[in-house]
Design a protein around this nucleic acid. Structure first.
Lengths: 185, 185
DNA sequence: ACAAACCGCCTCATATATGAGACAGTTACT
DNA sequence: AGTAACTGTCTCATATATGAGGCGGTTTGT
């Protein structure tokens, strides 16, 4: 592939992620226009709209995979792994702000996603076993709350660096935002 | 309005909320079909698609308003008000599962929403003042986290009643899901 | 039972998004 | 400099969603 083509491809993917996050039904024309590229250029690279969507999701999940690998979810101490994971995902959420909703679209993407979800699930179980999380809560609860918090940190407090935002997420997750706990006062 | 027309209207609104939550670009035809009603019936009641969307959002925010009023955010003790508010919103999220994203659509709806947001903001400030929440966090953080948690509680743990789900949200919000705090063990 | 309201179904017009073909002009590598 | 790759533009076909008019039949309220 020629270098300018590669640049355009990257640009289309990133612009697509951004626009689709704001409006999941953004048209190819709108994406192309926002990327300062002709609509036809997009259609030359991706045969169909679905293909572009799949490519954007793929880009995102590759970034997620890198973050997961870097967090060493199975080997590192749980507290460390948790922080690394959260920080990585916050960065990914900012770089690839794709909506999580219609993930079931492409089968390859779904499979990729399921593999990563399984890894995180295993980590959460380990975190409970090793006493980081309370075991008396519905298992699905932490699983639901953690991604929400990471999304809030990515979008809700954009001034914070990923590292500081991760501090906030982990602290909120583990101890909450209430006043009365040992480390307060 | 005739009674059967009222029933159909209600049905369309509820079905619309459900479908639009799953897929914000759901067509009028899809909504009508899911509501076992002809497409033309919808268009008779709502001149345009925007109008239907606005009506659905209006229905949701009226329910939110009821929940806020019932919580007595300014008079009741903060802990009580918080719990009542959370429980009410969880119920609303289940009854009117509208996406929060494109709220900026209709001006009347946006205005309505802003008024409610302001009320909740004031309550959160009071909660900090009265020592329920830690004051050393970005003000926007609790504001971002609370709605996410209420959404997670509505969708992520559907088996729990609104009251039990509210317990979970409040406890998670105030003390987190970590192991080491005074009430554990 | 009767009049009005309402619904379902047909049809039509319009707008917008998708996808592809062809070709001239420009840009990148060797 | 020359070749291959790439892009922009124009055009066309197709599909789908929106919105509205009209009409016969059904349901509701009195």
């Amino acid at each position: 592939m020629r270098s300018d083509a590669a640049r355009n491809l990257e640009l289309v993917l990133r612009t697509g992620a951004r626009l689709l996050a704001e409006d999941p039904s953004a048209s190819i024309a709108a994406i192309a226009s926002a990327a300062s590229v002709d609509r036809r250029t997009v259609y030359r690279r991706f045969t169909s709209r679905e293909e572009l969507l799949a490519a954007v999701h793929r880009a995102r999940y590759e970034a997620v995979e890198q973050a997961i690998d870097a967090a060493r979810l199975q080997e590192a101490p749980v507290a460390v792994a948790l922080h690394l994971y959260v920080e990585g995902i916050i960065a990914v959420n900012r770089a690839w702000p794709v909506v999580m909703r219609d993930v079931r679209a492409d089968p390859t993407v779904a499979e990729h996603r399921n593999r990563l979800v399984k890894e995180v699930d295993a980590f959460l179980v380990r975190a409970v076993d090793e006493g980081l999380f309370r075991p008396d809560l519905p298992l699905g609860w932490i699983n639901a709350v953690l991604p929400s918090l990471m999304l809030d940190a990515a979008e809700g407090v954009p001034d914070l660096t990923p590292a500081r935002a991760a501090d906030l997420v982990v602290e909120t997750l583990l101890r909450g935002v209430g006043m009365s706990h040992p480390n307060a006062a």
